[in-house]
Every structure is written in C-alpha cells, then in structure tokens.
Design a protein around this nucleic acid. Sequence first.
DNA 1: AACCACACCTGTTCGC
DNA 2: TGCGAACAGGTGTGGT
Length: 320
Amino acid sequence: MPELPEVEIVRRGLAAALIGRTVVSVDIIGALGPRSVRRHLAGPADFAAALAGHTVIDVRRRGKYLWWVLDGGDAVLAHLGMSGQFRVYDVGCADDGVSHHAPGGTRNVALGPHTRLRLRLAGSAVGTANRAGTGRTAGTEGTAAGRILDFVDQRTFGGLMFVPGGAELPAPIAHIARDPLDPAFDRVRTVAAIRRKHSGIKRVLLDQTVVSGIGNIYADEALWTARLRYDRPADSLSVRAAGAVIDATIAVMRSALDQGGTSFDALYVNVNGESGYFDRSLNAYGRAGAPCRRCGTPIRREPFMNRSSFFCPRCQRRDG
DNA sequence: AACCACACCTGTTCGC
DNA sequence: TGCGAACAGGTGTGGT
C-alpha cells in the first residue's frame, strides 16, 4: 500500500517523466474511469478539458498526496489511495500517433484491466538536466516524442482532480499536516500535538492532520522501534518518548525510500512498474506468529480500526 | 471540540 | 464445485 516513501518514489518518477511536457489529451477509460476523477466535482469532461493544453512545470508532495504544478499556477492533485499507480510509456513520435485506431487513441501500449485514465503528452523536458561533460544537450533526447501516462487503480480509492490556483498547496489538502521528511517539518510542534491527544498513539500517528504520510505499515514499524504498543495513550508519553516515535517514523521511512518502497503484492510499483524491496526489512508488519527480532516472542496481530496491528507483546508496552 | 465508527471500493483467499 | 465472508486500508463524513 502506498504510504509516504512509495508516494515519494512515484513523485520522483512523475517529475522525470512530466516536467516540461504538455498534456495533449485525457481519456477516461471504461465504466470505472469516472470514479478516478469523482472528487473533481465539475465532472469527467470538465477535468479532461481543464487539463488539456497545460504544461507540467513541477511535481510536489505532502504526505501521501502529490500534485503537478501547471503553467499558469493551477494544479492537478492526486492520491493513490490503496492501489493507485502511475505508469509511463514512450510511444515514439507524437505526430505519427494522431491516427487513433484503437479506443483511447492507444497505438502500441495495451490498456490494462484497471487503467482508469490515459493521458497523452508531447514535448520534451528542457533545461536543468544538461550537465557539462555529458556530451549531450538537454532536450535533444526525446524531442517531439509522444508519451503516455496511465493512471491504474484496482480498488478505485485513489483519484485526481484539477485545482485552479493550487500550485503552492491545493486547497483540498490545506488541512494535511507537513510530513516528517518535509524540510519545514516542525518536530517540536508535532511532539506537542501528539501529547495533547488522548487517543492511542497509533491512531494519532495515522491522523494526517497531526503528522502526514504515515500509514498502517510504517506506524507499526515505528512503534516497534519505539517499543510502544499501538494503544498506549498519546497524552501519557513524555516529550522524549513522543520525540522518539517521530524519529522512528523518520528513520523507517527514509530507509524504505532508500530501498525503493515497500511492496507486498503488485499494488505498489513505481512509474516503470518495478516493485520495492523494503518488505524484506519489516520488523512487525505482516509478521504475525514470527519471532520478534529483539526478544524472540511471537509477533501478535490484533484487529484495530478495521485493519490490523502487529506488535511484540513483550517488548512493546502499553504502560510506561 | 474531540473522538470514533463507518462507508467507500475490488480482487483474492479462505471456510463451509 | 460454488458461494459468501473475510480481508487488504486511506480518507471523508457524520454521529456521539
């Protein structure tokens, strides 16, 4: 499931693939395609029309949301939900792609069963990638190349919307707190916010208005590292303990980022369809019955918030 | 105001 | 063999 590290991998892939490119067309695919733009209240046709003709100038992220900054200061806001993917394909010259034979204008890339949106982009990235000594000029590679961007989403929890004037921070996510990997993340304020909550610490870590980007997997991993059980009251934590939890989220998410993210199944892949490897490093999540890597006690799984919590019943304590 | 339960959604797996 | 239940879980909403 995509949490912050996975979304950041996708953001980097999108930045490389989209910046400097112009949206030529937007196709909304199949009966479920409109669901992927359901949060765009003006409707699918309006979404497609609003986006066409715009050039992408940046791709940014906050927590699990990412957005494309468009020329003119508008934005396309996206969330992967549980199973959303962006996939990038080069399809040769855009000019010879205008004779659309297959539905959706596909020339040589088949539509997958869960493809909800297909964008066609033209133009090439210009500018900063050009480095002295490479012997290449930025913009040469891929000039006039056509590129396809598919939004694929099996469970349709994800989606895109066009946000006028949303370049700096799209209004629909103004309530989302900064994430721990944000350079402007305020650790002191976040620790204080955590310690004001009477809920269990895991519930607080999953509250995107307190700190964003953390989902079920990395919450369990951070709590294992900090030796806290999921239901430990947040307002019972010392400043030091709450800080340790935050530091643990940072460490585990940075580590996952270094390994390309966590993949349990085909639901998370990068823009080239490749999986990450962090699942081999997990200490708690998905390890029910397996020995705790610290003390050997079998990891326990308990239902929690319509999902599962994994923890070591011996070295993760509810009481301080 | 703070907190909590639940709906939303599809494909896979499991038990009967 | 077939079928329904359980499960995966991030987010927004509405109720307490």
